[in-house]
Simulated assay, not measured.
Amino acid sequence: MAKRATVDFVLRPFEGLPGEPDWVAMREVVPAATGTARTTAEHGAREVVVATVLPMAWPALHRADGTIMIALQQHAGSGDASRDLADLLLRALELPAGTPITSAPLPEPGPRLQDVLDLDVPFEVTVHQGFDFWTEGGTDLGPDVGPALEQMNETIIPTHRLTSVDAAYWARMGEREYLRWAVPHDEQDFLDALARLHVRRESGLGDQGSVGKFIGAFRSCGVLVPVWDLAPGTEAAELEEPVQALGGRLAEALAVEGPLDANERRARAGLVARQLTLR
């Protein structure tokens, strides 16, 4: 029996796509959101809705109204999320309208999202406060979807995407609020910049971190996602100004050349100790 070809592992699968940090954030930290994409002319120039999740954990769906949908939050994969999603997308394009893909076998080597999507189409994210986008246009997805939709809407974590910077998401989890910000910078350069700010007590949000304190970061799909613990009761709108100010400080720190000094190196070591790799 011939050995099945396997897909090579890719550390940063969404690199090169418009809005790479938002792809990562939607895959890891945003419960309900959709993003815009379009296939290349070779693949029909079809509009595609990229969703966080789909009903019944379906990997993809050719909705009855003709909409093609793929889900980012999937548990298994080949090691290259871009290849996995491209395979699902191409399969969904061939399905009759109203048909879901209910399972996702591992694909063999083949085109990736970077090959099948029009890279000139911006990835515009809409965060939803529920999963009703599944049934937009009156689409009937079957009797099991209604109860699942109701249950998921009851347990959703309130989330908002900020407008002052890209790929930054406020979330309320229980009685606490957090900011999780997927950053597009090289990880080592970003950690150097954050360390420079940290020793000056400028890595927080607001004056002396009054709005939010940096508590750590996780790494997913090759992108770093720093996290700030916010002052209790902080609403998303209150973050716009302090996050924009922090973005300015980070840009200045990223532009600094030369090695870190002793204090900055110690600060950097502390930042690295608070990191976690998700996948």
Score class of each variant (00 low, 15 high):
residue 122 P to D: 10
residue 212 G to E: 04
residue 213 K to V: 13
residue 209 G to K: 06
residue 137 G to R: 03
residue 139 T to K: 01
residue 176 R to K: 13
residue 264 E to C: 04
residue 48 V to L: 12
residue 271 L to H: 05
residue 117 L to N: 07
residue 79 G to A: 07
residue 62 H to S: 07
residue 143 P to R: 07
residue 213 K to F: 02
residue 2 A to M: 04
residue 258 G to P: 06
residue 111 P to I: 06
residue 214 F to H: 15
residue 24 V to P: 03
residue 51 A to C: 15
residue 80 D to K: 12
residue 205 L to M: 05
residue 61 L to R: 02
residue 181 W to R: 05
residue 197 L to R: 05
residue 28 E to P: 00
residue 165 V to N: 06
residue 259 P to R: 12
residue 114 Q to W: 00
residue 64 A to P: 15
residue 5 A to W: 04
residue 128 H to R: 04
residue 69 M to G: 01
residue 1 M to A: 14
residue 273 A to S: 15
residue 74 Q to S: 05
residue 235 E to G: 13
residue 242 P to F: 01
residue 191 L to H: 02
residue 248 G to Y: 07
residue 110 G to T: 02
residue 252 E to Y: 00
residue 237 A to M: 03
residue 132 D to A: 14
residue 72 L to C: 06
residue 86 A to Y: 10
residue 88 L to A: 11
residue 152 M to D: 15
residue 272 V to R: 13
residue 111 P to D: 06
residue 77 G to R: 11
residue 133 F to I: 01
residue 116 V to Y: 07
residue 208 Q to F: 12
residue 81 A to E: 12
residue 61 L to D: 14
residue 42 E to D: 12
residue 220 S to I: 00
residue 51 A to K: 06
residue 222 G to C: 06
residue 31 P to L: 09
residue 222 G to K: 01
residue 242 P to L: 05
residue 77 G to M: 10
residue 95 L to N: 02
residue 160 H to Q: 14
residue 224 L to G: 07
residue 105 P to A: 08
residue 66 G to S: 06
residue 185 H to V: 00
residue 141 L to W: 04
residue 105 P to F: 01
residue 241 E to F: 03
residue 12 R to A: 13
residue 75 H to C: 00
residue 129 Q to S: 13
residue 245 A to I: 11
residue 145 V to K: 09
residue 78 S to Y: 09
residue 180 R to G: 00
residue 257 E to A: 14
residue 109 P to R: 03
residue 17 L to A: 03
residue 159 T to S: 10
residue 19 G to H: 11
residue 75 H to M: 08
residue 124 E to G: 01
residue 84 D to T: 02
residue 231 A to L: 06
residue 62 H to E: 04
residue 125 V to T: 11
residue 123 F to N: 06
residue 230 L to K: 10
residue 157 I to L: 12
residue 199 V to W: 12
residue 229 D to F: 10
residue 229 D to E: 14
residue 85 L to M: 11
residue 58 W to Q: 07
residue 128 H to S: 09
residue 43 H to W: 14
residue 255 A to K: 10
residue 204 G to H: 01
residue 43 H to A: 11
residue 34 T to W: 05
residue 271 L to D: 09
residue 214 F to W: 15
residue 260 L to D: 12
residue 102 T to R: 13
residue 196 R to D: 06
residue 86 A to M: 08
residue 186 D to Y: 04
residue 73 Q to L: 00
residue 48 V to I: 15
residue 88 L to H: 07
residue 64 A to N: 02
residue 92 A to Y: 09
residue 83 R to W: 00
residue 247 G to M: 06
residue 127 V to D: 10
residue 59 P to S: 03
residue 65 D to P: 07
residue 13 P to Q: 04
residue 131 F to N: 11
residue 16 G to E: 04
residue 198 H to W: 02
residue 13 P to S: 05
residue 155 T to E: 09
residue 272 V to C: 01
residue 236 A to C: 04
residue 254 L to H: 03
residue 40 T to Y: 03
residue 161 R to M: 13
residue 72 L to Q: 10
residue 127 V to C: 11
residue 198 H to P: 00
residue 101 I to A: 02
residue 146 G to N: 02
